[in-house]
Design a protein around this nucleic acid. Structure first.
Length: 701
RNA sequence: GGCGCGGUAGCUCAGGUGGUUAGAGCGUUGGAUUCAUAACCCAAAGGUCGGGGGUUCAACUCCCCCCCGCGCUACCA
């Protein structure tokens, strides 16, 4: 199972450059991948670590509209911001590339043509909505209209948020384009599809059989769910003017589907990396180790040699693309290796709620860095100790403070400080010599020896939380050792003993500087400076002779500082404030519908009715079956409100009912009319009733 | 409703293939200590392992049913 690989290629999910990224993204993919790669480098492995901005897709030009600028300006802005934050957080990419770069367009088109020429893509013509004022085909999300199921006038082309139905734009009544407010027209269009279903057998063998034991259960389970449900052909092209042109004749106005090109971005980035190394002109490349005599063609070793271990780090929302669609593309293209593992993390929640930039409930990378300058490692640590490795996890500011004060300051920083201060005090800041070893000394040295392998085993198994805890345990070992041996007391009687203790303590500190590096790289640098120790070789960690006797140490400084309550309270307040702000800003501005005549209106017979009975509908999560007294009659109405009201809650209530809507059968029951609801901005439904009770059947006009 | 992943100490989380008194960190309480950013070190308290059945000599760990959370999916005229 665990094959020994010659080299590693590690990818971190390409962040979508339509906005800032938050700490949930860091916890999902970036921090774990960086730890993994730094460890591999320290262990002397051949590794390339790639990432970059994902800059195509409909949402980019859309964000441009929102910010009243161009798509190019959007990607330039967010690419720069994200890249800068990653750099400040110590993400050690060998290259941070961009999918807008020419080489990526070339690579993507090459692979597309490869599939096309082999006849692996199918061509289909369909009718889709087109906005002839904006001259664009409309993505489902950008069409609104009346929901055919619940009559919600603001249903989206892919989904009605009131009743939750999955829709296609063609089902909407009175569709309008959200871009111009115009009614879109149907226009035929041709697209190229990847028949995913042809690969079901192969996926079953590759994932369900051969990776049953080494992939994480959450990842495996999701893949199984998709494969079992049966795969469908998926369009690999879109009608859009932003993206990578479809490299075929008569394909004007068509670009590659963003999820086709984005993962190929890993390949492009690798190619760009070796190109830049060969040309010795580094634009995007930031090589983190020595690449001797690198040639442009070396990228092939990383993508086409079975001795390379390819690992994709992603969040759980990306599993299907990295485990199903991209591998199918690679497999179909031929010559490429497949990911050995996709250790996807789940989501990180924040203070009891889902993280969301658009709802203002998040900690954005750039904001953290602005508020906590020089503290990237504190965030790395707080995230590492609470990564959502097996299930969704939770970040709280209080926990962040506790991790800083009780662990980084009190255990790690404190141990290092104690060892250094004692050495200054008793040995003029020079590493003293070991003499005869007591039992305690020997026990501590033997425990020290086991740490690197233990930490490495956790990292190899993608158990970064456990690995982080082990690093902290090494600092604990140091503290315990000092408490047990009490060199400050021994100094009165036995300086040789004190020398031994401090030598060993300093060796532990030197070891810490090596093993902590993948996790807290900035701390490692500071620590090495204090120790005047330059080595960073994992294979030598565990040794008790890292620092030679007589070696002069540098000036000591505090590695971490305590964080006061008011700092944390300020952040919590900021979080709640930004949520409120976004709630106001997000007030949906839904364009008024097309003008109607009074006659149109008066066709509707709306009345006040009284709910006589209500019951849940078997096998339905959303439906309630209501008996309503309309004044005219007592009738049955099916209503999709079960998730908002308990039956007993609405019995006896007066409601607004459209009585002359044509009856329809729902779940086998004839529904006669429709209950009208007000939908709050959070999606909650409220009954509409008169401010004072009126007799049943009162008309509304 | 179907499928997937979860529900373990106050909090955040670990617990391959079932087996002695269920673990860690933080928090709490008590003790010890003063080299250190009142930090460290030791100890204790604290859990009917979501609920109920079953298989087994033995289940947190396997099977069935139910409840709750999250995600996907369906019904929602």
């Amino acid at each position: 199972m665990s094959k020994d690989f010659k080299r590693y290629l590690v990818t971190a999910a390409l962040p979508y450059a339509n906005g800032p990224k938050h700490i949930g993204h860091l916890a999902g993919a970036y921090i774990p991948s960086d730890v993994y790669v730094r460890y591999l480098r320290s262990a002397g492995k051949e590794v390339v670590f790639v990432c970059g901005s994902d800059e195509h897709g409909t949402a980019i030009p859309n964000q441009a509209l929102k910010e009243n600028t161009t798509a190019q300006a959007i990607i330039d802005k967010y690419d720069a911001q994200i890249k800068d934050c990653f750099q400040q957080l110590g993400m050690s990419f060998d290259i941070y590339h961009r999918t807008s770069e020419h080489i990526h367009h070339e690579t993507s088109q090459e692979i597309f043509l490869n599939l096309y020429n082999k006849g692996l893509l199918t061509e289909e013509v369909s009718e889709q909505y087109y906005d002839d004022k904006a001259n664009v085909f409309l993505a489902d999300r950008y069409i609104v209209g009346t929901c055919p199921k619940c009559a919600n006038p603001n249903a989206y082309g892919d989904q009605c948020e009131r009743c939750g139905s999955t829709l296609s734009p063609r089902e909407l009544i009175n569709p309008t384009s959200t871009l111009t407010g115009n009614a879109p027209v149907l226009k035929t269009t041709k697209h190229w599809y990847l028949p995913l279903q042809n690969y079901e057998g192969w996926l079953t063998d590759w994932i369900l059989k051969s990776h049953k034991d080494d992939w994480k259960v959450n990842v495996y389970g999701q893949c199984k769910s998709w494969i079992d449900a049966g795969l469908q052909p998926r369009a690999m092209t879109r009608d859009l003017d932003w993206g990578i042109k479809v490299p075929l004749p008569n394909a004007e106005g068509k670009v590659l589907y963003v999820w086709f090109d984005a993962p190929i971005g890993y390949i492009s980035a690798t190619r760009a990396f070796f190109n830049e190394l060969e040309e010795k002109k580094l634009k995007y490349a930031t090589p983190q180790r020595n690449f001797v005599n690198a040639k442009a063609t070396d990228w092939k070793h990383y993508w086409q040699d079975s001795e390379t271990k390819l690992i994709h780090f992603v969040g759980k929302d990306n599993i299907v693309f990295h485990c199903i669609i991209f591998p199918i593309i690679l497999k179909a293209a031929g010559e490429y290796i497949l990911p050995e593992n996709v250790p996807a993390n789940e989501f990180m929640n924040l203070e009891g709620d889902k993280m969301s930039t658009s709802r203002g409930w998040s900690i954005e990378m750039h904001e953290y860095l602005a508020d906590f300058p020089q503290k990237p490692d504190v965030l790395r640590y707080a995230l590492l100790t609470n990564l959502p490795e097996t299930k969704d996890s939770e970040f709280t500011w209080k926990d962040f403070q506790a991790k800083n004060n009780n662990e980084l300051v009190a255990i790690f920083g404190n141990f290092v400080n104690r060892a250094l201060v004692l050495t200054q005090k008793y040995f003029d800041n020079k590493v003293p010599a070991q003499s005869s070893l007591t039992q305690i000394d020997q026990r501590v040295l033997s425990e020290l020896k086991d740490f690197p392998a233990k930490i490495a085993a956790s990292i190899d198994a993608y158990r970064f939380r456990e690995a982080t805890a082990s690093v902290m345990d090494l600092a604990r070992l140091g503290n315990k050792y000092l408490a047990e041996t009490e060199p400050w007391k021994l100094a009165k009687t036995n300086m040789a003993g004190v020398a031994t203790i401090l030598n060993i303590s300093l060796q532990i500190a030197a070891n810490l500087s090596i093993v902590v590096e993948p996790f807290l790289p900035f701390t490692a640098v500071k620590l090495r400076e204090m120790l005047q120790f330059n080595q960073l070789n994992w294979n030598e960690a565990g040794s008790a002779n890292l620092l030679v006797v007589g070696h002069s140490l540098g000036a000591s400084a505090l590695l971490f500082e305590k964080m006061e309550d008011n700092v944390i309270e300020k952040q919590i307040k900021k979080l709640h404030d930004s949520k409120k702000e976004m709630e106001l800003a997000n007030q949906p501005v839904i364009p008024a519908k097309v003008e109607i005549s009074f006659d149109d209106f008066s066709k509707m017979d709306i009345r006040v009715g009284t709910v006589l009975a209500a019951e849940r509908v078997e096998k339905s999560k959303k439906l309630l079956k209501l008996q309503v007294d309309t004044g005219i009659d007592k009738r049955t109405v099916m209503s999709g409100i079960a998730e908002h009201f308990a039956p007993e809650q609405i019995i006896g209530n007066q409601v607004t009912i459209l009585v002359n809507l044509a009856p329809r059968k729902i779940m086998g029951v004839e529904s006669q009319g429709m209950i009208l609801m007000a939908e709050d901005k959070d999606g909650k439904l409220r009954l509409l009733h008169p401010n004072e009770a009126v007799s049943a059947g009162s008309t509304i006009s």
